[in-house]
């Protein structure tokens, strides 16, 4: 086996030695990382630090999805971009920067906004999905696509001085119908919030370090899911200005009537891929909000 050649071990040790010498990772864990494929959907305040730490940790393939370009107002929190990058594609800029951090891993660039139709085929190619997007509609379709493709989903969000973190669909649903499957996003939020109750980062603002903490915790969770796939899902909120900033929550309930992940599910891969599910309509209660 070429993985066990002394020279191979030595090169890994030089680069990743500080994480390989821990019992939680070790040589086996590093090999698992080297063979893993992680998809990051959204390269904003969550996706930038998540991508940076995963590239440096030596995952095998890092997939990068975003359709936006860098804006000046992004720079306070989107750590892969520099002043000179304003106006450039986020995915291409991030790719260039990540390659300078770790040139030995493989990157896949998806320079477009992800849609429900495209999501399942894309998720098929990865082991772990990180939802680093910033809209309610994408939160729902990414969860649905993770369920139909049976991938664990690391989910976080941030606004103002606050962040939320969840590990969803782990162990993945629909594998064997057993009771150990983790809840999906719809188990916890069966109905979407009405748009008038939802504030965006542009309206309510967001602090760089708040969204940064959430993004790094996502990277950590991806490493845990790869090296210790049977770890328990957990849920956390971070309230930076509170006296007890981190709070762990028990949300571990699977909805037995969930339309996405229960035995009674009505959302299928075919439906998703057909494009007939209008998530903007679902979340906004309006017609033709955008062309999904």
């Amino acid at each position: 086996d070429q993985d066990s050649r002394p020279s191979y071990r030595q090169s890994k040790y030089q680069k990743y030695g500080r994480q390989m010498c821990m019992p939680e990772i070790g040589f086996d864990g590093q090999i698992k990382l080297t063979k893993s494929k992680v998809l990051i959907v959204g390269l904003g305040g969550l996706g930038c630090p998540a991508a940076g730490y995963l590239a440096r940790a030596g995952v095998g393939t890092l997939g990068l999805v975003d359709g936006d370009t860098v804006e000046t107002s992004n720079l306070h929190r989107q750590t892969l971009y520099l002043e000179e990058d304003v106006g450039q594609s986020k995915v291409l800029t991030a790719y260039g920067r990540l390659r300078q951090m770790n040139s030995r891993i493989h990157y896949e660039r998806y320079d477009y906004r992800l849609t429900p139709e495209k999501a399942p085929k894309l998720f098929d190619q990865y082991d772990v999905i990180l939802d680093c997007t910033d809209r309610q509609s994408s939160r729902y379709f990414i969860s649905d696509a993770a369920v139909v493709t049976r991938k664990p989903l690391v989910h976080a969000s941030a606004l103002g001085t606050m962040g939320q973190f969840m590990v969803l669909n782990n162990p993945p649903s629909l594998i064997d119908g057993n009771a150990h499957q983790g809840p999906c996003y719809r188990c916890i939020f069966p109905k979407p919030m009405r748009p008038e109750n939802s504030r965006s980062c542009a309206e309510a603002g967001v602090l760089g370090p708040v969204v940064g903490v959430m993004g790094i915790v996502m990277a950590m969770e991806a490493i845990k899911l790869i090296t210790q796939p049977n770890s328990t899902p957990w849920y956390m909120i971070y309230n930076a200005y509170s006296k007890e900033p981190f709070k762990m929550l028990n949300l571990n309930r699977k909805n037995q009537n969930c339309v996405a992940c229960s035995e009674k599910c009505t959302i299928t891969r075919e439906l998703l891929e057909s494009g007939s599910l209008d998530y903007d309509e679902f979340c906004g209660g309006r017609i033709n909000y955008d062309v999904l």
């Binding site: 109905k191 919030m193 009405r194 109750n197 929550l249 949300l251 309930r253």
Partner: peptide
Amino acid sequence: EMFVMDGTVRPGILVLINDADWEL
């Protein structure tokens, strides 16, 4: 309507009773 809808808390609000989801 920012807090209640149809006689219960509106969609998108989680309620925790002593740190556990109230649905539990």
